[in-house]
Design a protein around this nucleic acid. Structure first.
Lengths: 344, 344
DNA sequence: TATTAGCACTCAACGGGGGAGAGTGCTACC
DNA sequence: GGTAGCACTCTCCCCCGTTGAGTGCTAATA
């Protein structure tokens, strides 16, 4: 694409992002110092429309970027804004707290992201803890309930109440705990599957009740019933944007945000890329065609652990959001790595 | 108030609750079999308006209930609906799960309430656990972090990561745990305050480092930084009601629901009453004048532990909501009591 | 005296009509 | 190729008459 055409497209998109109103040739010529007359801009715009980068709501209106236009903008035109000092500070502050209660930690962090971007944000938690198992502890709660606590080398603690199908006394729990620790300590959290540990226990020739109990505890512990969790925050931010003045649209959006599975899908759509942008039709969910989503992955041990996403109208401020999210994911990864080093 | 007038008021309110549109004299006469002509109804309506029970949006419109009208309805006219079988089933189902992870348990329960009422619902967690302390366990996490787990006689588990200002080794933690258990076991959770335990420790003449450490742990443990938590669910339900077609109103409402303190205040406004209804102006927050809230308390050991609230437009279905919430709070209290008995 | 039928009146909601204004596409000229 | 000029298009907005629901009043009725 010819240089001037690019500048025209860029002008249209940035103006539309800023004002949410169709952009006319006059405005482009005037505000974005291209040094040519509106008539010339009109010719360029006509071309751009033919090629599908922009659209006209009706004959006498200005132009509006199409999904293809935004895509071109994000890929070729956009200059990533650098996070401001205040933003950097807010992020560092949010990351300075204790990571141990990981869910709580991310819940707070998600809130900060919403505030900084002024869009709804969401975070997918790691499917299973990452890092190596550093400690496994069992605390009897009731007769048939045990609280199992697992500390990973990442410094992240996971706990779960396990309901047992039989009574168990304290002595047995201690033995069980010892056995499980002997087996699993130092293993990668991800390899700690029910099948694996069950096999291991049988190999070791452990017998009788304690074996059965271990297996039962493990089954409950790794049963994928809780699924992967997502955290969502700041949906209210969407109310500020004119594209959601329509209640029906809002309803569709909010209902989607209340459906964990769909949010999960949106967050996963970014794949293994460090950062990715899905625009309009490209989104994993067809109900929100006039939205875009920026997702970034965060890593533990160099492996993708979860992702952070920011949802906005297709007219969202890509340069700001992309830059911010990239920085945020990088910092989060760094904090998790640092934490891990401290433990090891 | 004269019997026929009551019936007219009742008809207006129920019709308005059902249809969200001003009710005319003809509609009242026709649909609510009073056996008199619209003209007569008009006279009654004129009186009711003069007394402030109903209002007229404009001259040629029907009548709309005022806050005072709703209040009279709730206090004198309304017949409490009985929860349907499906509702009862849904509630029992929701309550049949494990109460141990109380927050999670209530989170799921809150969701059920929203679904049944089709209004946003919220639950305030107990300020501090209730019942007696049955077990206190400390699990070292990092060098300076301990996970403190407290099990109450209610069967509810609370845990918190405590950051220590100094390193502590495992042996010391075990001693600390023993000391704290000796002191606090069997005490009412509510009496377990920092000041109390500190005093106790001094009385016992405990000395040196372990004493300091205990005090520090306790301070962190009871520091009210986490405040009381509230759970909110189903805000999206509000989108279905015509009174929230206005985005500005919606924004005010949603922003309020995102402000924990304000929600807390709304929930607390019910006082010690088993169940209470706040209508429009009576609400603890003046920003949502056209909403009403039904709150019910739930109890542990006969003491108010927290409350459950359902927020709706002033035009909400009081008879259904009140009946449902009354039942829900009663059942929740019963489940918590049963749980407690099992532990003791 | 309470109720009702009749009727004039009021007012929001709806819809058509006519500028106003923004923006375009085309043409002719530089 | 770039630009000025101009006719054209279409939305937005305001105005205004019509419609219809619902009222309040009055006079007749049980």
């Amino acid at each position: 694409m010819d240089e001037r055409k690019k500048r025209v497209l860029n002008a249209i998109i940035e103006d539309y992002i800023a004002n949410a109103e169709p952009v006319g040739s006059r405005a482009v010529a005037k505000k974005y110092g291209l040094g040519v007359s509106p008539a010339t801009i009109r010719n360029e715009m006509s071309d751009l429309e033919e090629e599908g980068y922009i659209e006209q709501p009706h004959t006498s209106a200005g132009r509006v970027p199409s999904d293809k236009g935004y895509r071109f903008y994000v890929d070729n035109l956009m200059e990533k804004a650098r996070p401001t000092e205040e933003e950097v500070k807010a992020i560092k502050d949010a990351l300075s707290g204790s990571v141990v209660e990981f869910d709580e930690f991310l819940r707070g962090f998600c809130n900060v992201i919403s505030r900084l971007t002024s869009y709804p944000s969401m975070i997918a938690l790691p499917e299973q803890g990452r890092g190596k198992l550093v400690k496994l502890q069992m605390v009897p709660v009731h007769e048939r309930q045990v609280l199992v606590i697992m500390l990973a080398s990442t410094g992240i603690l996971r706990h779960k109440i396990v309901d047992l199908p039989f009574d168990i006394d304290e002595g047995e729990i201690i033995r069980l705990e010892e056995e499980l620790n002997r087996l699993a300590l130092g293993m990668d959290m991800q390899e700690l599957s029910y099948d694996f540990l069950q096999k291991k226990l049988y190999e070791l020739g452990m017998r009788e009740r304690i074996l059965e109990q271990s297996v039962e505890v493990l089954r409950k512990l790794f049963h994928p019933q809780d699924g992967r969790k997502v955290i969502i925050n700041g949906a209210t931010n969407m109310l500020a944007h004119p594209e959601f003045r329509d209640i029906e649209k809002l309803k569709t959006l909010f209902e989607l945000l209340e459906t964990e599975g769909k949010v999960q899908k949106l967050l996963d759509a970014g794949g293994e890329e460090n950062l990715s942008v899905a625009i309009g039709e490209e989104l994993a969910d067809s109900q929100i065609r006039d939205c875009s989503m920026v997702t970034a992955n965060y890593f533990i041990n160099g492996q993708r652990a979860g992702s952070i996403g920011v949802l906005g109208p297709t007219r969202m401020s890509y340069s700001h959001t992309v830059a911010l999210l990239e920085y945020i994911a990088k910092e989060l990864t760094a904090v998790l790595d640092k934490n891990k080093k401290e433990i090891e």
